[in-house]
Write a protein that binds this DNA or RNA. Structure first.
Length: 204
DNA sequence: TGCCTGATGTTCT
DNA sequence: GAACATCAGGCAC
Protein backbone atom coordinates (compact mmCIF):
# COMPACT_ATOMS: atom_id res chain seq x y z
CA UNK A 1 0.00 0.00 0.00
CA UNK A 2 1.87 3.07 -1.29
CA UNK A 3 0.23 5.62 0.94
CA UNK A 4 3.08 7.91 1.94
CA UNK A 5 1.15 10.73 0.25
CA UNK A 6 -1.26 10.59 3.18
CA UNK A 7 1.40 12.34 5.25
CA UNK A 8 0.73 15.52 3.30
CA UNK A 9 -1.97 18.00 4.25
CA UNK A 10 -5.63 17.21 3.69
CA UNK A 11 -6.25 19.75 0.93
CA UNK A 12 -3.49 18.15 -1.13
CA UNK A 13 -4.48 14.60 -0.26
CA UNK A 14 -8.23 14.90 -0.90
CA UNK A 15 -7.98 15.18 -4.71
CA UNK A 16 -5.20 12.59 -4.82
CA UNK A 17 -7.45 10.01 -3.17
CA UNK A 18 -9.86 10.14 -6.12
CA UNK A 19 -9.63 6.89 -8.08
CA UNK A 20 -8.03 4.93 -5.25
CA UNK A 21 -9.69 1.63 -4.41
CA UNK A 22 -10.96 1.29 -0.86
CA UNK A 23 -11.06 -2.33 0.27
CA UNK A 24 -12.59 -4.06 3.27
CA UNK A 25 -12.54 -7.72 4.20
CA UNK A 26 -15.91 -8.75 5.63
CA UNK A 27 -17.01 -12.18 6.88
CA UNK A 28 -18.95 -12.80 3.67
CA UNK A 29 -16.22 -11.60 1.32
CA UNK A 30 -14.04 -8.80 0.07
CA UNK A 31 -15.63 -5.47 -0.76
CA UNK A 32 -13.98 -2.95 -3.07
CA UNK A 33 -15.11 0.53 -4.07
CA UNK A 34 -13.50 3.29 -6.11
CA UNK A 35 -13.35 6.66 -4.37
CA UNK A 36 -15.03 9.33 -6.52
CA UNK A 37 -15.73 12.16 -4.05
CA UNK A 38 -13.87 13.56 -1.03
CA UNK A 39 -13.77 16.61 1.22
CA UNK A 40 -10.79 18.10 3.07
CA UNK A 41 -10.95 19.25 6.71
CA UNK A 42 -8.16 20.66 8.86
CA UNK A 43 -7.70 22.30 12.22
CA UNK A 44 -7.63 25.90 10.94
CA UNK A 45 -11.02 25.27 9.35
CA UNK A 46 -14.10 26.24 11.41
CA UNK A 47 -16.14 23.48 9.76
CA UNK A 48 -13.71 20.81 10.96
CA UNK A 49 -14.27 18.71 14.07
CA UNK A 50 -10.63 19.36 14.93
CA UNK A 51 -11.07 23.16 14.90
CA UNK A 52 -11.97 23.30 18.61
CA UNK A 53 -9.11 21.08 19.64
CA UNK A 54 -8.76 17.47 20.59
CA UNK A 55 -11.63 15.64 22.31
CA UNK A 56 -12.27 11.96 22.91
CA UNK A 57 -14.18 11.85 19.66
CA UNK A 58 -11.74 13.79 17.50
CA UNK A 59 -8.46 12.43 18.88
CA UNK A 60 -7.90 10.20 15.81
CA UNK A 61 -7.79 13.31 13.59
CA UNK A 62 -4.60 14.29 15.41
CA UNK A 63 -2.89 10.98 14.66
CA UNK A 64 -0.48 10.54 11.76
CA UNK A 65 -1.70 10.15 8.19
CA UNK A 66 -3.11 6.69 7.50
CA UNK A 67 -5.30 6.58 10.58
CA UNK A 68 -9.06 6.02 10.31
CA UNK A 69 -11.53 8.51 11.78
CA UNK A 70 -15.18 7.49 12.05
CA UNK A 71 -17.78 9.73 13.64
CA UNK A 72 -21.48 9.44 14.37
CA UNK A 73 -23.83 12.20 13.25
CA UNK A 74 -27.51 13.15 12.95
CA UNK A 75 -28.43 10.53 15.50
CA UNK A 76 -28.18 7.69 13.02
CA UNK A 77 -25.33 7.96 10.56
CA UNK A 78 -21.62 7.18 10.51
CA UNK A 79 -19.08 8.91 8.29
CA UNK A 80 -15.63 7.69 7.31
CA UNK A 81 -12.49 9.81 7.10
CA UNK A 82 -8.87 9.07 6.30
CA UNK A 83 -6.57 11.07 8.54
CA UNK A 84 -3.77 12.93 6.78
CA UNK A 85 -0.70 14.93 7.72
CA UNK A 86 1.60 14.71 10.70
CA UNK A 87 0.80 13.49 14.17
CA UNK A 88 -0.62 16.24 16.44
CA UNK A 89 -2.04 18.11 13.46
CA UNK A 90 -5.82 17.65 13.27
CA UNK A 91 -6.81 17.00 9.69
CA UNK A 92 -8.61 14.39 7.63
CA UNK A 93 -10.35 13.68 4.35
CA UNK A 94 -14.03 12.73 4.42
CA UNK A 95 -14.92 10.02 1.92
CA UNK A 96 -18.24 11.16 0.47
CA UNK A 97 -18.97 8.75 -2.35
CA UNK A 98 -17.63 5.70 -4.15
CA UNK A 99 -18.29 3.43 -7.10
CA UNK A 100 -18.99 -0.22 -6.22
CA UNK A 101 -16.47 -2.57 -7.83
CA UNK A 102 -16.50 -5.90 -5.98
CA UNK A 103 -18.76 -7.47 -3.40
CA UNK A 104 -21.82 -5.70 -4.76
CA UNK A 105 -24.23 -8.26 -3.31
CA UNK A 106 -22.60 -7.85 0.09
CA UNK A 107 -22.88 -4.08 -0.09
CA UNK A 108 -26.48 -4.33 -1.18
CA UNK A 109 -27.23 -6.53 1.79
CA UNK A 110 -25.41 -4.15 4.13
CA UNK A 111 -27.39 -1.22 2.79
CA UNK A 112 -30.83 -2.75 2.39
CA UNK A 113 -30.61 -5.82 4.62
CA UNK A 114 -31.66 -8.26 1.96
CA UNK A 115 -30.10 -10.66 -0.48
CA UNK A 116 -30.23 -10.08 -4.22
CA UNK A 117 -28.71 -12.98 -6.05
CA UNK A 118 -27.05 -12.59 -9.42
CA UNK A 119 -26.32 -8.89 -9.21
CA UNK A 120 -23.27 -7.91 -11.20
CA UNK A 121 -21.64 -4.71 -12.24
CA UNK A 122 -23.09 -4.89 -15.73
CA UNK A 123 -26.52 -6.35 -15.18
CA UNK A 124 -27.63 -4.34 -12.22
CA UNK A 125 -29.52 -1.41 -13.62
CA UNK A 126 -31.71 -0.52 -10.68
CA UNK A 127 -31.31 2.81 -9.00
CA UNK A 128 -30.10 0.86 -6.00
CA UNK A 129 -26.82 0.26 -7.79
CA UNK A 130 -26.04 3.95 -8.02
CA UNK A 131 -27.43 4.48 -4.53
CA UNK A 132 -25.12 1.94 -2.89
CA UNK A 133 -22.40 4.40 -1.86
CA UNK A 134 -23.21 7.84 -3.31
CA UNK A 135 -23.14 9.62 0.03
CA UNK A 136 -20.92 9.57 3.12
CA UNK A 137 -23.38 7.65 5.31
CA UNK A 138 -24.36 5.33 2.47
CA UNK A 139 -20.70 4.49 1.95
CA UNK A 140 -20.24 3.45 5.57
CA UNK A 141 -23.41 1.37 5.43
CA UNK A 142 -22.19 -0.41 2.29
CA UNK A 143 -18.86 -1.14 4.00
CA UNK A 144 -20.67 -2.40 7.10
CA UNK A 145 -19.28 0.34 9.33
CA UNK A 146 -22.03 0.55 11.93
CA UNK A 147 -20.11 1.83 14.95
CA UNK A 148 -16.98 3.84 15.70
CA UNK A 149 -14.75 0.87 16.52
CA UNK A 150 -12.52 1.56 13.52
CA UNK A 151 -11.90 5.15 14.60
CA UNK A 152 -8.28 5.56 15.69
CA UNK A 153 -7.16 2.33 13.98
CA UNK A 154 -4.61 2.33 11.18
CA UNK A 155 -5.40 1.46 7.60
CA UNK A 156 -4.49 -2.17 7.04
CA UNK A 157 -5.68 -5.65 6.04
CA UNK A 158 -7.64 -6.09 9.27
CA UNK A 159 -9.56 -2.82 8.94
CA UNK A 160 -9.62 -0.94 5.66
CA UNK A 161 -6.92 -0.64 3.04
CA UNK A 162 -6.22 1.20 -0.17
CA UNK A 163 -5.12 0.00 -3.59
CA UNK A 164 -3.71 2.39 -6.22
CA UNK A 165 -5.95 3.65 -9.01
CA UNK A 166 -6.39 1.36 -12.02
CA UNK A 167 -5.82 4.43 -14.17
CA UNK A 168 -4.67 7.88 -13.24
CA UNK A 169 -7.29 10.56 -12.68
CA UNK A 170 -6.24 13.56 -14.76
CA UNK A 171 -6.25 16.99 -13.19
CA UNK A 172 -8.73 18.20 -15.82
CA UNK A 173 -11.22 15.56 -14.65
CA UNK A 174 -11.18 16.71 -11.02
CA UNK A 175 -13.73 19.30 -9.94
CA UNK A 176 -13.19 21.41 -6.80
CA UNK A 177 -16.33 22.91 -5.26
CA UNK A 178 -17.73 24.09 -1.92
CA UNK A 179 -18.34 21.44 0.68
CA UNK A 180 -21.78 20.03 1.46
CA UNK A 181 -23.85 19.98 4.63
CA UNK A 182 -21.76 22.40 6.68
CA UNK A 183 -22.52 25.86 8.07
CA UNK A 184 -19.03 27.30 8.59
CA UNK A 185 -16.51 28.15 5.87
CA UNK A 186 -19.06 27.13 3.25
CA UNK A 187 -17.29 29.04 0.50
CA UNK A 188 -14.03 27.10 0.62
CA UNK A 189 -13.67 24.82 -2.45
CA UNK A 190 -12.45 21.79 -0.56
CA UNK A 191 -14.81 19.22 -2.00
CA UNK A 192 -13.29 17.21 -4.83
CA UNK A 193 -14.98 14.81 -7.21
CA UNK A 194 -14.47 13.14 -10.55
CA UNK A 195 -16.07 15.08 -13.39
CA UNK A 196 -19.16 13.52 -14.99
CA UNK A 197 -19.03 10.52 -12.69
CA UNK A 198 -22.48 9.01 -11.99
CA UNK A 199 -21.50 7.85 -8.51
CA UNK A 200 -20.88 11.23 -6.87
CA UNK A 201 -23.43 12.36 -4.30
CA UNK A 202 -24.63 15.23 -6.46
CA UNK A 203 -23.51 16.82 -9.70
CA UNK A 204 -22.72 20.38 -8.75
C1' DT B 1 -38.00 16.29 -10.54
C1' DG B 2 -37.42 18.75 -6.52
C1' DC B 3 -38.51 20.58 -2.01
C1' DC B 4 -39.71 19.51 2.85
C1' DT B 5 -39.61 16.92 6.92
C1' DG B 6 -39.15 13.33 10.43
C1' DA B 7 -36.04 10.02 12.43
C1' DT B 8 -32.68 9.66 16.19
C1' DG B 9 -28.68 10.15 19.74
C1' DT B 10 -23.89 11.81 20.55
C1' DT B 11 -21.16 15.71 21.45
C1' DC B 12 -20.13 20.00 23.15
C1' DT B 13 -21.69 24.63 25.02
C1' DG C 1 -30.32 22.32 25.31
C1' DA C 2 -28.84 23.08 20.58
C1' DA C 3 -26.35 21.64 16.82
C1' DC C 4 -25.12 18.18 13.79
C1' DA C 5 -19.59 16.77 7.53
C1' DT C 6 -27.34 12.67 6.55
C1' DC C 7 -30.92 9.82 4.40
C1' DA C 8 -35.37 8.30 2.64
C1' DG C 9 -40.01 8.96 1.88
C1' DG C 10 -43.93 11.86 0.92
C1' DC C 11 -46.16 15.27 -1.50
C1' DA C 12 -46.69 19.09 -4.76
C1' DC C 13 -45.85 20.45 -9.30
Amino acid sequence: METTFLKSNSIKVAPKLLGWILCRQLPHGLVKVRIVETEAYHQADPASHSFRGMTARTAPMFEAGGTIYVYFTYGMHYCLNIVTGKKEVGEAVLLRAAEPLEGIEIMHQNRFNDTVLGLTYHSMKSTNFYDLANGPAKLTQALNIKDTLLSGKKLGPQTLFLEPPQKMILAKDIIASPRIGIREATEMPWRFYIKDNPFVSRNN
